[in-house]
Write a protein that binds this DNA or RNA. Structure first.
Length: 476
RNA sequence: GGCCCUAUCGUCUAGUGGCCUAGGACGUGGCCUUCUCAAGGCCAAAACACGAGUUCGAUUCUCGUUAGGGCUACCA
């Protein structure tokens, strides 16, 4: 019984097949994520295949970026990376097989004539197809421009998409598609079909933009007698104008988000929710938790707009969960040790700044907010309190703080316990506002105790003196 | 132009014929907390594209319209 079942249920093997013609794209990363989730959920294998058949545009540094990006996101692969450029013998073998069986032929049409034909068809309102002018011409390999496959389908091809249901294509509208430039240079649709077969891919999970390629790939599969994998086409990630995500609106590469100080947990969580939804109302989920509840049935059909606000919220949430030490390490590795300065101070800044951070990059801005800028005397005045009273309170707090040991200054709780009774008896606003204003020099800032804790005794007292002088000179 | 896909709050979505007075999250607004700003807590506004069917009953099923998107390479 079990063996019988095994004949029908193939082991789950999925792949991510990026082409190294650019940095790891958000869309590719999300496709990788869904493939990874599917593989892990069903105990299958996740395979990485680099589709570098386009020699002109493929670059090793992009491959490196893709690999680093997937690792950073925590999407480790079980097999690979395979490279199509290293598999040319295999493609040639199958190309020869097609020739031998009279299923492929050389085409000598020039790029220009093909383009002209295409334009003409479009103007006449006809579908743009290659009708097979060279099909029976017996063109030699030397005269050839490219290799085409014979499409003799008269019936439509219907395939079942796991997300969208049956999709049907009229094969007469597809024509004899190009599958290779020559025996050593396969084209995308051909290389994909060969590799998916050779790598025993069970489920092809990819972006919606590949729906139109599917009948072409099935055509090649059938010519070669390959089994058909199951298909699932994911909705696209969209820009705010609902077109396919592009650089026009926002950063499109994973690298850019990492550089901007986004955490991998946040990006993974956010990307998973672009087209998929958990089974409960809890949206904040780690990779392993998403995997637990993942299923293709819960994937949306329509495209999803990339909403940076929600990404920011996720990122802020995950930042709040980290310890200051963890954040310090992440910031140091991202921007270099020199942006941090004194680690002891940096830890304090992060502790105070954490609720204000959307990204790790915000650290710099928060750190800079502690430098004292020139400010107006009126900033020190709380509501309608007389300047004399303000000065009096400032003098008193200055005096109290002066008596504290440096060690006592470094204890945030102690600082607060020490000063609060005075503030309570003289009015919190009248004491705390001028204190905070004097130390920060700004109308908006963290609380006075936090500021003093970060700046230390010496700097705090210096700033207080300065404020008192301001009040003295202008009070006359 | 042709082919294909899609359609619930501004955005991501729940919803599989009655549990819907359409639920959650982000964002937005308000209130509370409070020395300011954040953070936090509470509350609110905000959507089934339209038109025909099917049905006792449609957000949910069917058809059409409209709107959006994708593909249309010797790129992947």
């Amino acid at each position: 019984m079990f063996n019988k079942l095994k004949n029908f249920i193939r082991p789950v093997r999925v792949r991510i097949a990026p082409s190294p013609t650019g940095n790891l794209h958000i869309g590719t990363a999300r496709t990788a994520l869904f493939n990874w989730l599917f593989a892990k959920k069903y105990g299958g294998k996740f395979i990485l295949r680099i589709e570098d058949t386009d020699l002109e545009r493929s670059r090793p540094e992009f491959e490196k970026d893709i690999i680093n990006g997937l690792r950073w996101l925590g999407l480790e692969w079980d097999e690979g990376p395979y490279r199509q450029s290293e598999r040319l013998d295999t493609y040639e073998k199958y190309l020869k097989k097609l020739f031998k069986e009279d299923k492929a032929y050389y085409c000598s049409c020039s790029k220009e004539s093909l383009e002209k034909e295409r334009q003409r068809q479009m103007q006449e309102g006809k579908p743009t197809i290659y009708e097979g002018a060279c099909r029976n011409k017996k063109i030699s390999a030397e005269q050839s421009q490219l290799i085409r496959i014979k499409n003799s389908f008269t019936e439509p091809i219907v395939f079942n998409d796991l997300i969208r249901g049956d999709i049907s294509f009229d094969m007469k509208l597809i024509g004899d598609i190009a599958i290779a430039k020559n025996l050593r240079t396969p084209l995308y649709n051909f290389a994909v079909v060969i590799d998916d077969f050779e790598m025993k891919i069970s489920h092809v999970i990819r972006g919606e933009d590949h729906i139109a390629n599917t009948p072409k790939q099935i055509l090649i599969q059938q010519a070669l007698g390959f089994p058909r994998p199951k298909y699932a086409h994911l909705p696209l990630i969209l820009d705010p104008d609902r077109s396919k995500m592009s650089k026009r609106f926002s950063a499109t590469s994973v690298q850019e988000y990492r550089d901007q100080g986004y955490l991998p947990e946040a990006l993974v969580n956010f990307m998973a929710l672009l087209g998929w939804h958990p089974t409960t109302d809890i949206e904040k989920l780690l990779l392993a938790e998403i995997m637990e509840q993942f299923s293709l049935e819960r994937i949306q059909k329509g495209g999803a707009v990339f909403d940076i606000q929600k990404l920011n919220w996720f990122n802020a949430e995950y930042i709040k969960e980290k310890t200051p030490e963890e954040l310090l390490a992440a910031i140091a590795s991202l921007f270099g040790k020199e942006t941090i300065g004194d680690p002891a101070v940096a830890i304090k800044i992060i502790t105070v700044g954490k609720p204000r951070m959307n990204t790790l990059r915000d650290f710099r801005e928060i750190r800079n907010s502690f430098t004292l800028k020139e400010y107006d005397r009126s900033l020190l005045i709380w509501k309608n309190t007389p300047a004399e009273k303000i000065k009096e309170n400032l003098l008193k707090t200055n005096e109290m703080l002066r008596q504290l040991l440096v060690k006592e200054f470094n204890d945030l709780k102690n600082l607060e316990r020490y000063l609060m009774p005075f503030a309570d008896s003289n009015g919190r606003g009248e004491v705390l506002w001028p204190l905070r204003a004097a130390i920060s020099g700004r109308d908006k800032s963290p609380g006075p105790f936090e500021l003093m804790w970060i700046l230390g005794k010496e700097e705090t007292l210096a700033r207080l003196e300065k404020a008192i002088q301001k009040l003295n000179s202008d009070v006359e």
